[in-house]
Amino acid sequence: MKGLINILHSDRSLQLGVIIISVICLFSILGPLLSPYHYNTQNLSESFQRPSWSHPLGTDFFGRDLLTRLMYGGRITLTVAFSATLFAVIIGTIVGLASGFIGGWLDRILMRLVDILLGFPKLFVILLLVGMGYTSLGLVVTFLALFSWMEIARIVRSDVWVAKEQLYVKSAEALGLRRRRIIFRHILPNITGPLIVSTVLLISSLILIESSLSFLGLGVQPPNASWGTILNEGRVDPVGAWWISVFSGIIIVTCVIGFNLIGDGLRNILDPKTGKKT
């Protein structure tokens, strides 16, 4: 715990990022419980109201409180981003480990696959999949993960290449330990640093991709709403009902900045060479 606090204190951007993300998480988790409104109850008599005391961020076309919707949307956005990241990291780590540790033809095939997938314009492909009727939340998460694990796999693979040649790994191998044990006890713990950094950065890029999809009307579908869905609703009238697009955009940007700050901060701590000197 004390070590954690020390790490936090060692880098300003990490500190700021953690604060931003904690606030947003609290806002999304606790917010809907405290709000007097329900995210999806329509009240057409209060359609398109400007920000006021009773609706601090205004209302949308259906008279739903924007603040409550954003808090609720945060849950969806973060859940989608976190779970897609989790899957992507699991896939990427397994592929990277297999590729780096086993090598040979397996490595060649897997890296070819990575190249092919990296060459796909992500949004086109996911758009196609979702547009063809695979719209459930679980499937959106799956598609996002399936097209995001490649960077992780590359990073893990190249780190494994380095780690594999370390003498402590050779020593473990010489003891006749099983492969699985060598991978999970000796290699994986020593490559977690870069892995954590890219995981955090992946969360932020997945928030952006999910928002783009929902913004196009092809991501999270009503009655569910992510921040991107809400922003899409604001597109109808970006000037007359400016508060919808402005506030939903601000929260997306803030959240992404938060994760990027954490990623940068962690990178600075782990690899002081590329970052600013302190």
Binding site: S204, L208, S211, S212, F215, G228, L231, G234, R235, P238, S245, V246, G249, I252, V253, V256, I257, N260, L261
Partner: peptide
């Protein structure tokens, strides 16, 4: 630049 790096183009576009 951190701000622009984190800004989704669709939001920037709408604004």
């Amino acid at each position: 630049m951190m701000f622009f790096f984190s800004t989704p183009s669709f939001w920037l576009g709408i604004m």
